[in-house]
């Protein structure tokens, strides 16, 4: 499979879950695990361009496919507008649901660059956050929508440490 644009390969047990392959084999620990029942969404990654819950996909099933994780959001040292939005609008507290939320947000904005609050809430409704009450996640995604230009590069100023 390719992960964040890089080809990776490995022999794994067929039963290995994709989330474990990413975390344990590739050490891409930005993808989290939070439940076992595909209810929480902390494990969301893109597979062939679509957000999926990686706790409910076998690594073997992802073989030959294109995976994108949170580690693939930042491009050439430039944070994605979604990442900047989460920082600017305090869209995260403990940070555990954040990677999955941001990947869904990126997908939403790719398909709907100017989503309403309702559309944002609908898009992230399969993912649980215990800290933010969702309000600032919605604001963060709106921020990203308002601070993106066509190709996804964001506003100029540096945010974050």
């Amino acid at each position: 499979m390719t992960v964040n644009g890089e080809a990776v390969s490995g022999e794994v047990e067929p039963r290995l879950l994709l989330v474990h392959f990413l975390r344990d084999n590739l050490r891409l620990t930005g993808t989290h695990w939070g439940c076992d029942t595909s209810n929480c969404g902390t494990c969301v990654v893109w597979m062939d361009g679509v957000p999926v819950k990686s706790c409910t996909v076998l690594a073997a099933m992802a073989s030959g496919r294109d995976i994108r994780t949170v580690e693939g959001l930042e491009v050439n040292g430039e944070l994605d507008p979604v990442q900047k939005g989460f920082i600017e609008m305090h869209g995260l507290q403990c940070g555990f649901c954040t990677p999955g939320m941001m990947l869904t947000a990126r997908w939403l904005l790719d398909h709907n660059p100017d989503p309403s609050e309702t559309e944002i809430r609908e898009a992230i409704s399969g993912q649980i956050c215990r800290c933010t009450g969702y309000e600032n996640i919605v604001r963060a995604i709106r921020w990203a929508a308002e601070n993106s230009n066509g190709n996804g590069a964001a506003m100029k100023e540096e945010v974050g440490a």
């Binding site: 969404g41 999926v52 819950k53 869904t104």
Partner: peptide, 9 residues
């Protein structure tokens, strides 16, 4: 049915 991410799959 379920949620948007599950519906993708």
């Amino acid at each position: 049915i379920a949620d948007p991410i599950v519906r993708n799959r």
